[in-house]
Every structure is written in structure tokens, then in C-alpha cells.
Write a protein that binds this DNA or RNA. Structure first.
Length: 153
DNA sequence: GCCAACGTTGGC
DNA sequence: GCCAACGTTGGC
């Protein structure tokens, strides 16, 4: 069992959108960064747990959790000429980008703000704080437990 | 809206 | 393969 942190701009897609989606499930597509792609394609597995993070908004932080309900498959948007995620260099034979499906698990009453994350010594080594721009990133079990201890349901 | 950090592109 | 130019992310 592994743990991850997925970033989303809530104006684009929020934890509330996920919680109210059909079957509380969504396709996590549009990832167009190679490092994030490699995690999605090679390491994110069915049943893994996800911290849902809101970026570029008023209340930046971790807002809930989700679970991987489908492992990596080619992101259909790369083949769609009308999508902003279209990639002319991708083909069905050699897809370049991948997505997974996630299902909502919990929404926190209050977000665990970035400021509180930075203030917690147990979280000092989080990839979130080390590598600010990575939108799919691993989380250790210890970090997961520390986050859960801070969360109000 | 600004700007730092960092990823990507493309000329050489 | 290097590196400058450029684009994007994301906190503030």
C-alpha cells in the first residue's frame, strides 16, 4: 500500500467536485509533466491512498483523501484534437500520457493549511515542501499518519 | 499580479 | 549534450 499527494486547483476541480461526482469517482487526467507521469504510470496502484491538495486558491492545503480505483491507462485527452491536453506526438500505439481513476474517501472539515504543514516538524521532509511544482508526488506512511492526526473529519 | 523556482524547447 | 530563452506552476 502506497500513499500519494495529488494537487488540483479547486477552481478547476475541487474535493467537493469529487465528492459529488457519479460514484464519487473521477478520472485524474491532464497530467503533462514527465516526473508526475512516471509516478502515475509506474507506481500508483489500485487501492493506494491519496491526499487531495488544493493549490492556487484562498485556502491552500490538504482538504481530504481519495483512493485509487483504477491503475494507469492512457489518458484519452492526448488523442482529442479539441482538448487542451491534446498531444500531436502521442499515438494509440505509443501513448505518452497516463491517467488513473480516484474515488472520494473523506473531506476534512477544515483544510490542513500549507502553513500548518510547514510548521509540523514531522512533515519537514515532505516532497510538497521540497519540490513545490510536482503535481503527483509520493507521501511516506509516517507523513500520512501525521496528516491524519491533524485532520478534523 | 508579481516573481521565484523549475521544467521544456531548440539552436548550436 | 550544453545552455539560453521561454513557459508554467504556485505561494504570497
Amino acid at each position: 500500500m502506497k500513499y500519494w499527494l495529488f494537487k488540483s486547483e479547486p477552481d478547476d476541480y475541487s474535493i467537493r467536485d469529487l465528492a459529488t461526482a457519479p460514484e464519487q469517482t473521477a478520472k485524474w487526467d491532464g497530467i503533462r509533466n514527465y516526473q508526475a507521469r512516471n509516478f502515475l504510470r509506474d507506481q500508483v496502484s489500485l487501492g493506494d491512498h491519496v491526499l487531495f491538495y488544493h493549490s492556487q486558491c484562498k485556502h491552500i492545503g490538504i482538504v481530504g483523501t481519495a483512493e485509487i480505483v483504477r491503475a494507469a491507462y492512457p489518458d484519452p485527452a492526448q488523442f482529442d484534437e479539441n482538448s487542451k491536453y491534446f498531444d500531436p506526438k502521442a499515438s494509440f500505439e505509443t501513448p505518452r500520457w497516463f491517467c488513473v481513476d480516484i474515488k472520494h474517501q473523506t473531506s476534512f472539515k477544515r483544510e490542513i493549511s500549507l502553513a500548518r504543514i510547514k510548521a509540523n516538524p514531522a512533515l519537514a521532509e515532505m516532497v510538497l515542501l521540497k519540490q513545490g511544482r510536482l503535481s503527483v508526488q509520493p507521501v511516506t506512511e509516517q507523513e500520512w499518519q501525521a496528516i491524519m492526526a491533524m485532520a478534523e473529519r
